[in-house]
């Protein structure tokens, strides 16, 4: 009888695993666990770098992601904008992903305009999308004005006070890239940071972390936010808890389910193998 149950468990319908995972990940939306993330050195370095910039510094932000990576990177994008606004810096925002402009515009309006009441063109500028990937990155090193003759809304850059005197990367104190892949952090590191000597911070989806950690260790990146965990740590650091901190509860529960099923599956497998051996 016991053996039959164990053999059935070994062939457990995978849909039960899906169900368990769904319940575990969704449950924190109804019952908050409130797990506080601990700050890791790459996130602290990211936070500290923005903190130490003189107020009013011009910061170039390249937000390169799409709806598929919105879950991890949108909270990051919102938090970065909030931190920049809190410190009184002035972001010039662009994207190299054709599916990003609407997502980013919504974040800019929510944070810069509605939450902080900043004035467009004076306190922040949205350049919008430019296709061309690495070619655009390199072209901005020569002239941002010829790469982006107008902003996202078609206004010539000369009519935007914040863009007065902006020529290339040397006009910015910092480059921040929130990236879901190509083109993104790797390309900015390869084509921009070493060539144009601009310090860079990066936020990326967790899947890219093993690759980008090497850039942080080598000093090519001054700070690194890693996936939803990094976003949650960053939200806690700037004192503005948001979606990432809530998502951490679901993330933790999901990890528990995965660990449980790995252990459970192996246990059942070895028990069955042992009983088969005896038989």
């Amino acid at each position: 009888m016991a053996n039959t149950t164990l053999q059935k468990l070994e062939k457990l319908d995978r849909r039960w695993v899906f169900l368990a995972m769904a319940i575990a990940v969704a449950a924190p939306l109804f019952f908050k666990l409130g797990l506080a993330p601990k700050t890791t050195p790459p996130v602290k370095a990211f936070y500290d770098y923005i903190e130490q910039l003189p107020p009013g510094s011009r910061v170039l932000c390249s937000f390169d992601y799409d709806p598929g990576s919105k879950a991890e990177l949108n909270p990051m994008c919102v938090s970065v904008l909030r931190h920049i606004m809190l410190k009184g810096h002035k972001p010039v925002i662009l994207t190299l992903w054709s599916t990003a402009p609407a997502l980013i515009e919504r974040n800019i309006n929510e944070v810069c305009r509605d939450e902080f009441g900043k004035q467009y063109g004076v306190d922040y500028v949205y350049l919008g999308l430019k296709e061309g990937r690495e070619a655009v990155m390199v072209a901005m090193g020569k002239s941002i004005r010829s790469t982006f003759p107008t902003d996202f809304y078609g206004t010539p850059l000369d009519n935007l006070p914040l863009m007065n005197g902006v020529e290339n990367y040397s006009s910015f104190a910092l480059l921040i890239n929130v990236s879901a892949g190509y083109p993104g952090t790797k390309e900015y590191v390869q084509y921009v940071t070493s060539r144009f000597a601009i310090p860079m911070l990066s936020g990326s989806s967790a899947v890219s972390v093993p690759e980008y950690s090497a850039y942080f260790q080598s000093g090519q990146l001054r700070g690194l936010l890693t996936g939803i965990t990094g976003a949650a740590e960053y939200e806690a650091l700037i004192g503005k808890p948001g979606l990432a901190i809530t998502a951490m509860d679901g993330q933790t529960m999901g990890h528990f389910v995965i660990i449980f099923f790995i252990l459970f599956g192996n246990l059942i497998f070895f028990i069955n193998r042992r009983s088969k051996g005896r038989a």
């Binding site: 990940v25 879950a71 899947v207 996936g227 939803i228 998502a247 993330q251």
Partner: peptide, 10 residues
């Protein structure tokens, strides 16, 4: 895996 769980939560 972390990325995928984040997508599911979203």
């Amino acid at each position: 895996v972390m990325t995928r769980i984040a997508l599911l939560f979203d």
